[in-house]
């Protein structure tokens, strides 16, 4: 019938307007079966609208979308049997226990009582919630709630899972737990489409990253392809004394092979580097030899801001929040 060979999600020229401004403006995407796709973009780029169209919650004005082999507009019921959705808020019931939540969703998927119970047990084990299964969800941490929500979306082991900003608002530990859960889902063979505002998150989890801006995909590729498009990793350097700024800039320029961007007020220098560790080691050694006091040196991935700057050629109106994405700080 409509089955597209080995593509779990296909969107072609999808448009959606709310009132005046378009939320999706010619959205194209193709996600192969069994892969994780990160839909990356700032607030208001159209990520959630895209997920809502693909999960049959929203009807597109124009274009075509096929999920798990069925057209979302023409055969929504068939699509719903094959997808799971975990939205921005964990749709879990606080008053019920973790186990009761999963049994309830199982019953709503029309599993018989015994199967729903067994499935709930399996999912609790799998998502690391077995020890807290009989606790009411209101006593769960943010990460546990999200994992329970993922488990609920996974009751039928759907072939395509949609996760809308699954880690927003979580602390690093809880976030890591959710990442682990997403890896589990992907390893079990489901296709995962997740939205995120953070490049490093997409980098951690996704085989494919699609960057969305103003309702359309402006770049699409593997994390490595995308990062090289943006210019790779960055060295961030803060000198203790403004007097050392000029000399530090020369050191960094030598290591990076190009002049760094300077922010004299913050005594900060930034330059993209290709040989990450080699460049970092060289910079630190040179600075040490020349006696330039350094307050902070960090190697980091480009932030979403920088991705956008590079892809669109203009800085988005986004504030700096989320800008300090990368973990592997060396100081």
């Amino acid at each position: 019938m409509e089955r597209m060979n080995s593509l779990a999600v296909v969107a072609e020229g999808v448009r959606k307007h709310y009132g005046g401004a378009p939320a999706l403006d010619g959205f194209d995407l193709a996600v192969p079966e069994g892969t994780v796709c990160g839909l990356l973009g700032p607030n208001g780029a159209g990520k959630t609208t895209a997920v809502r169209v693909l999960t049959t919650l929203l009807r597109a004005d124009a274009g075509r979308a096929v999920v798990a082999g069925f057209d979302v507009a023409a055969r929504p019921a068939e699509v719903r049997y094959r997808i799971g959705l975990a939205g921005q808020n964990a749709a879990v019931d606080e008053i019920l226990t973790g186990r009761e939540n999963l049994e309830m969703w199982g019953r709503l998927y029309h599993l018989d009582a015994a199967t729903a119970r067994r499935r709930a047990g399996e999912l609790l084990d799998r998502f690391g919630l077995a020890a807290d299964a009989e606790k009411r969800v209101k006593h769960y941490s943010g990460g546990m709630r999200r994992r329970l929500d993922l488990a609920a979306a996974f009751v039928l082991a759907p072939s395509v899972l949609f996760l809308d900003e699954p880690t927003t608002g979580l602390d690093p530990r809880n976030r890591d737990e959710v990442w682990q859960a997403v890896r589990e889902l992907a390893a079990s063979g489901s296709t995962v489409l997740m939205t995120t505002q953070y490049l490093f998150e997409a980098d951690q989890l996704a085989h494919q990253i699609a960057v969305i801006d103003a309702g359309r995909v402006i770049a699409d590729g593997s994390p490595d392809e995308l990062k090289s498009m943006v210019g790779g990793d960055q060295i961030d350097l803060v000198v203790r004394d403004a007097a050392g700024l000029a000399e530090a800039a020369r050191v960094l320029a030598a290591a990076a092979g190009r002049d760094p961007v300077a922010d004299p007020g913050a005594r900060r220098l930034t330059a993209p580097v290709h040989d990450r560790i080699g460049a970092l080691t060289e910079v630190v050694r040179e600075l040490g030899e020349r006696g330039i006091a350094v307050e902070d040196v960090a190697l980091r991935r480009p932030t979403l801001d920088e991705v956008f700057l590079s892809l669109t050629g203009e800085r988005t109106a986004r504030a700096e929040e989320g800008g300090h994405g990368e973990e592997d700080r060396a100081a």
Partner: peptide, 14 residues
């Protein structure tokens, strides 16, 4: 609706 429960219902074959 605010907690996303309505969305999940609507994304389910229910």
């Amino acid at each position: 609706a605010a907690r996303g429960v309505t969305d999940r219902f609507r994304s389910m074959p229910i």
